[in-house]
Design a protein around this nucleic acid. Structure first.
Lengths: 365, 365
DNA sequence: AGCGTAGCGGAAAGCGCTTTCCGAAAGCGC
DNA sequence: GCGCTTTCGGAAAGCGCTTTCCGCTACGCT
């Protein structure tokens, strides 16, 4: 009996009248143990409420039933949705999940990764765009490489650059382009974008896809305002947009969460959506269906994303090249977008070059 | 060097030219190691990218830097909000979080608890009401007792019954009573409740508090419809309510998540909120502020709840009696509640006994 | 200068489990 | 019925770390 009162495998073996090794085999293995003995061991374990020490087991087996998951904010519906999928997949494989929420602090991401390497988790999942900071990227890269060198598996969502890990990649460019075309189809000819931090590939791709689809109609995005990837970030960005003077009939927010904030800002300013301005987001987090008006968006199967990234990390053979699973976003037109108001700014001269404060950021890659 | 390529403490010691024990002390302890040696070890560890094997450490120390957290659905904003707080507190204490999401399957809760016992986590956090099933409760109770007997610490949110664990308990009764009084103050005299499963103490308390406040005005709840603790559960319950014929000017949904569904159902039925019917929820999940209309609710500091339950579990001395922290819910009146419509049913005869299909459930405990 | 004491480094014993390596027991054919 | 093959159970060696227990060194004191 271990000092803390927990029975050990030895206790079980003794209670069952077999050797320690036999008890181990009886409990774990498909190995050959006589049926009656196996049963006796099982009963003894049951009776003692034996719970194998996972650490001892992991140490002896040099493998582990844990996976590490690092996301930016478990309170954010986007990550919560993905986490849901991850949990489901993990349960299917009898894996336990060690969760890290960075709260968008780069250093915390590194330290989580390092901690998970120490835990010898079987796989490490990085969910969401990486941080811009070069040094941070370098540290993370190093950490991940060490982890992989030790046999760990890494898979990511929305973050392929520089990590060459297996990845689930939402097709941000194509999705945003589809959205742009749908909005053009509604009659809009002038657009503003509330982007997230322009350092994130996710944002660059969404903005880029949106722009390129417009470009083939000879239209440019009138205004871009950067904001944090949060509800309040969207709210502030929308306020900034209004402060600058809204010069668009349609606003595209880089994420639904931001769009929610934008909606609030517009409403506060007395703008009706979609009568005065159309608004679209990206991701399709569950709650936006219940907003008034329900939000047009590019739907990503969040829970699926989580399940797939888990499965990806668990695939046995590591090919030379990283496996990439692309996930299509489906445009869902809801009531937050409609025809542009008649008398809208720029209507009738869609091809005019737009002199405005412009955005200093490079186009799509 | 371990076979998987990870350097071991022995490697570090050799590289630093000290003994294994010295290396261990240098890295961990406030124990006495000469400063220059300590530094040499640190450098060697750094250079080798040494990451101590957490399992070996946990095994040797018979303690562990992990805590287990079990909730019902990490995708639900209520639990996601609490989880956020837990993560924050865990990070403060350098603890890693092993997360379990039961998806409301009782057996999964047991198996998570058992798994976490095997992990020898330092603390176990159970978030949210327990399951009704007697056998399930018994198993969980047994599991928890074994875990505690082995020195584990358990803390819970919203689940005191039968576990005698330290608990953070939202004051559901008082909160619901306050809400009822506020609604009475708005002029309402007839009420329907969309409750969650009546087997949950949370629901019983909220319903009970609501009822008892009404009772002191001689008013009874006209209708109670049970539904699942989800958006769709609220939606369905509201539809059922409408099907039976809404006989109230104000509807109280046991959780915000349910209220969101109810709002959708009412809107679909052409009922205006709050002009035709007032609607209130409970919890104050972030998104309800952005609904139209914003939802009246009883605000719980979700993130705080998470931080507090974590801190509670970490408190060193275990007193004979469980520590209970009660958390007050604050009524937040928003636009989803207003004065009852004139010509509302029952108006003018608030004290009449209400013969209707009634609810078979006992009153507040 | 000699002795006592404190402090620091090294050897070694586990932590609880898995797993290999053997020896023993059982089953089979002739 | 005897020897050989096949199973199966037990002893023991780690997995990587912490920690106790010693012995040695170096310093301080008289």
């Amino acid at each position: 009996m271990a000092e803390n009162g927990q029975p050990t495998l030895g206790d079980v073996a003794r209670a069952a009248g077999v050797s320690l090794a036999t008890a181990s085999r009886a409990l774990n293995g498909a190995t050959q143990v006589r049926a009656d003995l196996r049963e006796r061991v099982r009963v003894a374990a049951e009776r003692l409420a034996y719970s194998p020490n996972a650490h001892a087991r992991a140490l002896a087996k040099a493998s582990n039933a844990g996976v590490g998951v690092i996301c930016h904010d478990i309170g954010d519906p986007y990550f919560a949705g993905i986490a849901r999928g991850v949990m489901r997949a993990a349960a299917r494989h009898d894996l336990q999940v060690i969760l890290g929420s960075t709260f968008r602090e780069p250093l915390r991401e590194i330290s989580y990764a390092s901690m998970m390497r120490g835990q010898r988790v079987r796989a490490m999942l990085l969910i969401g765009s990486g941080f811009e900071d070069r040094a941070v990227q370098e540290s993370l890269r190093r950490e991940v490489d060490l982890y992989r060198a030790a046999g760990g598996r890494v898979a990511v969502i929305s973050r392929h650059r520089g990590l060459r890990a297996d990845a689930v990649l939402p097709e941000n460019r194509a999705g945003a382009a589809d959205l742009a075309r749908a909005l053009l189809g509604l009659g809009h000819r002038s657009f503003a974008v509330l982007s997230g931090p322009l350092s994130l590939t996710t944002v660059v791709d969404r903005l880029g896809g949106f722009r390129s689809a417009l470009a083939s109609w000879g239209i440019e995005v009138s205004q871009v305002v950067e904001g944090a990837f949060t509800r309040d970030g969207g709210y502030e960005a929308a306020r900034e947009l209004l402060r600058r003077g809204l010069a668009a009939t349609c606003v595209f927010a880089a994420t639904d969460v931001m769009a929610i904030g934008a909606l609030a800002a517009f409403r506060e300013a007395g703008l009706r959506v979609p009568e005065d301005v159309s608004l679209a987001g990206f991701d399709d987090i569950p709650m936006i269906r219940d907003l008034t008006p329900p939000l047009t968006t590019v739907a990503l199967p969040l829970e699926d994303l989580g399940e797939r990234v888990m499965e990806l990390a668990l695939l046995p053979d590591r090919p030379a090249r990283a496996r990439i699973e692309r996930v299509t976003g489906r445009v869902v037109l809801r009531a937050s977008t409609g025809a542009p108001p008649s008398g809208a700014p720029h209507e009738g001269h869609p091809h005019q070059p737009e002199p405005h404060e412009g955005d200093p950021h490079e186009g799509p890659r």
